[in-house]
Design a protein around this nucleic acid. Structure first.
Lengths: 92, 92
DNA sequence: ACAATTATTAGATAGTTGTCTAAATATCTA
DNA sequence: TAGATATTTAGACAACTATCTAATAATTGT
């Protein structure tokens, strides 16, 4: 189950997409405009992120709006907390 | 900087190695014995984990003992906390 | 219905990765 | 020094991935 998740996070372009979506929801076109790669390539990355459950997409007229799925990030955190380090993240 | 880290986490065998090392330190041979792949393949994975800073290795006679580097896990957690979800991990 | 806009999907290709076997390196013991 | 054990490194190969261009689908406006 974690496999698609960690593979999705392994690409720097995809991590940057997640950071953009953390700021605010954006359409596929807005996201693609931030990268020096072809539109279709970004669309592929969005598909990977969606398959991993990291983002959700919703059609809005001709646009498709993407948003972060924060729930999955909390699962990642729990994974790390449960298995490793037993804490951390806080300065404490 | 995070790139080698997330790429290292993207492989299920490597994540399993990390879980084994979270229990206790082990030698390369002990780790390799847990997997149905060739010894050399596990050695390769250990190299990837070491390059990512997720584990440390120390020679102990003819053996090489691996241990988890928990500091790096805390960095991963901080990455998620700083950029996404603003919390999580706890049930709160 | 047709054209324009937005986005995904298909097919091809180059680069990366995981795995294997075989060879090399390091340590220990006789 | 020679042999046994533990581990890594080298070289090859199949599978996967990121990227591209071209084609397809969905929506809007005329």
């Amino acid at each position: 189950m974690h496999d698609s998740l960690f593979r999705a996070l392994a690409d720097p372009t995809r991590r940057r997409i997640l950071e953009l979506l953390a700021e605010r929801d954006r359409t596929a076109g807005e996201i693609a405009g931030e990268f020096p790669v072809a539109f279709a390539s970004v669309s592929h990355h969005l598909g990977v992120l969606k398959a991993a459950g990291l983002v959700a997409a919703e059609r809005e007229g001709q646009f498709i709006r993407y948003r972060l799925n924060t729930t999955v990030f909390q699962e990642v955190m729990r994974y790390f907390m449960a298995r490793f380090s037993g804490g951390g993240g806080n300065d404490a």
